[in-house]
Nucleic acid binder design. Structure first.
Lengths: 156, 156
DNA sequence: GTCGAACTTCGACTTAACTGGAGGTCATGG
DNA sequence: CCATGACCTCCAGTTAAGTCGAAGTTCGAC
């Protein structure tokens, strides 16, 4: 119960869980997957630097828009694990993701617009619309569960 | 092997699989989940109306942008299962999804822009940026695996 | 120095979305 | 009429992302 104090800039897992809204079980899971990391006390307990909160916010944001933890882990690997990222760090990350995010935004807009445009243009079959055409080109990039083997040119 | 003929506007599962690019196993799976349906021959084999191809294209598009099969199933339940959807059908579907899709597009753009904007404005902590703020509001809307229960406004 | 909350590991379970195999049935060109 | 390939059902396995519980350890306020 009492006041958990802990060295000002080192947060316990419970504190991080509370502040980030991410369950502590999930934080350990993220650690397993290499998304975050922590120092340990003499007694083997985790202590997180504040920068971790930022990392977690980023992870959740990226997840919300449909990116996998593997993709996110790869991107995050370019950021320093324990200190606050520098401008250069962000720029690097930004470059890698820009295209990927643009593609996804495009797909979403396409879907949304198809719902209207296809009606407007009378091509109810969708056949001439972006919806269909994208389908073919992005082909196996499709849905998201198992294997996802090849995955193409790696870069996210 | 030979020419699989079948009544012109009724496709076999193999034909649908080939034309849609979706494995036949997955087509049966989709049927279980109520996403598509088929008539049966006297011998109990599936025969799909052509409109099914459109449904499948829609399903895959929606999945690609991160919607769950449950969400998609719900939306599709407003469309006629066997005939081509009418303009009114599409309009109904469109209305239901518009907001949802807009929200997702927004989140994506926010993430993308955060990668640049946060650098530009110097708030490397992201704390003042959309990334963080959205987090709270969309809260439980978040990641996608099990339960998804209360989740609360945790606040990152 | 002790007591309870918070922490530790580890392994089993869950959900979503498939994927694959076994074992049997249907359809059709020769 | 029969071989072969496409189809059928059922069920078990996989991957991703968690989630839960047991059993034991550490922390820190009293």
């Amino acid at each position: 119960m009492g006041g958990v104090t802990a060295l000002a800039h080192h947060l316990t897992i419970g504190q991080v869980a509370e502040r980030s809204g991410v369950p502590h079980t999930t934080l350990r899971f993220y650690e397993d997957r290499g998304l975050i990391s922590a120092e340990r006390t003499a007694g083997n307990q985790r202590r997180y630097p504040r920068a971790t909160l930022r990392r977690i916010a980023f992870i959740r944001s990226a997840q919300r828009v449909g990116l996998s933890l593997d993709d996110i882990a790869e991107a995050l690997s370019t950021l320093p694990a324990h200190s606050a990222p520098t401008k250069a760090d962000w720029t690097k990350l930004s470059k890698r993701w820009r295209t990927e995010l643009d593609t996804r935004i495009d797909a979403l807009q396409r879907l949304r617009d198809s719902l209207t445009t296809c009606i407007g243009c009378g091509c109810l079959s969708l056949r001439a619309c972006g919806l269909f055409n994208q389908q073919d080109q992005l082909a196996e990039y499709g849905p998201g569960a198992p294997k996802l083997k090849a995955a193409s040119e790696g870069g996210i």
